[in-house]
C-alpha cells in the first residue's frame, strides 16, 4: 500500500504548515542555545571583577588594591556629599572604611546607611567608582514616623539590614 505523503495537483505538499512549524522550533532552539551562551559568557565576564567587602581590600586574594574591584559596604551616616555632579561618601564594613568618589547620581534608593556595591579602582586612598548599585536588605517594614525619628538619632542600624 502506498503511504507516501499526498501531494496537491501542482505537486506541492499538502501540509507545508507543519514543516514550517518544525523549522520554527529549530530556529527557536538555535536562539535559546545562543541566549544560553551569552548569559554564561556575560556572567563569567562580570565575575572578572572580584566582589570584596571593604575590609578585604588589599587583604583577601583577588582583592588587591591595584586591580578593578566590586566593593560592598554601607554608606556611612553623615558622609554623603553631592557637588558639581559628583557624589562622595564613606563606605564601611566590619569597622573598616574607604572614601568613595562617583561621577554622577547613583540612582535607585541610594542614601546614607544603605548597603551598596561600588565598581571601580582604588586610586590613592579614594575608591573611584564608575558604577554604583544599591543593595536592599531582606527586611520589609512599614514606614513609621516614630521609628524614622529614632533611627535618625542613631548610627546606621535599620537600613543596613
Amino acid at each position: 500500500m502506498d503511504l507516501t505523503p499526498r501531494t496537491s495537483p501542482d505537486n506541492a505538499p499538502l501540509a507545508p504548515r507543519k514543516r514550517n512549524r518544525k523549522w520554527k522550533y529549530v530556529a527557536m532552539l538555535i536562539v535559546v542555545a545562543s541566549a544560553g551562551g551569552i548569559i554564561v559568557t556575560q556572567f563569567l565576564t562580570s565575575a572578572i571583577d572580584f566582589y570584596c567587602n571593604v575590609d578585604e581590600i588589599g587583604v583577601r586574594d583577588g582583592c588587591e588594591a591595584n586591580r578593578r574591584l566590586r566593593v560592598q559596604g554601607v554608606v556611612a551616616k553623615d558622609s554623603l556629599k553631592s557637588a558639581s555632579g559628583r557624589t562622595s561618601f564613606v563606605m564601611e564594613f566590619n569597622n573598616h572604611s574607604v572614601d568613595v568618589m562617583y561621577e554622577g547620581d547613583p540612582g535607585g534608593i541610594f542614601q546614607e546607611c544603605i548597603p551598596v556595591v561600588a565598581h571601580g579602582r582604588l586610586v590613592g586612598d579614594v575608591f573611584e567608582a564608575n558604577r554604583i548599585e544599591v543593595k536592599h536588605s531582606n527586611q520589609y517594614e512599614a514606614e513609621n514616623p516614630d521609628r524614622i525619628a529614632e533611627s535618625k538619632a542613631t548610627p546606621c542600624t535599620q537600613l543596613a539590614g
Binding site: 556575560q42 562580570s46 547613583p106 540612582g107
Partner: peptide
C-alpha cells in the same frame, strides 16, 4: 531593580 538598585539588570 531599576527603582531600588538603580539598574535594570546586573550579571
Amino acid at each position: 531593580g531599576r527603582i531600588t538598585w538603580g539598574t535594570y539588570w546586573v550579571w
